[in-house]
Amino acid sequence: METEPFILDVVTLKRVVFSEPIESVVAAGTVGYFGILAGHTPFVSSLQVGITKITKPGGEKLSLFTSSGFLMTDGKKVILLAEAAERPEEIDAVRAQRAKERAEKRLTERPSDIDIDRARVALLRAITRLKLTRG
């Protein structure tokens, strides 16, 4: 189905990661993945760590790593606010691997002073990043 392209802005605290017309976007909402096409009804969702899949006009696809944030749309444009957002080529695989090992160690050893939820999220972030670098 041909749809009208609409603008997607992916913005983090530090920079604008993506700002282009697109055909559709699929993002990891806190209650599950959802997709947005042009003319979507006004919608706001919180996001969890995940992969945001973008389809550009003409069918070219792009995946971004996005960590927790929000997505909002008024039907004409979509704004995605995330704590961190990276294109696959920007991901530091070595660092992600190290973060993964660190988080795993924390979760298996469980020293009393750590925040289990934080370690879990860190692990999820690392795994998601690695998944994206491996295509």
Partner: peptide, 27 residues
């Protein structure tokens, strides 16, 4: 402008948003 649909709920999004709003201001 008319309330959008919130997922999960406006309350939960707000709870999620407040600390981030604070961080943005501090940054």
């Amino acid at each position: 402008k008319g309330e959008p649909i919130f997922e999960p709920t406006a309350e939960e999004i707000m709870a999620y948003l407040l600390p981030k709003y604070l961080e943005a201001q501090i940054y």
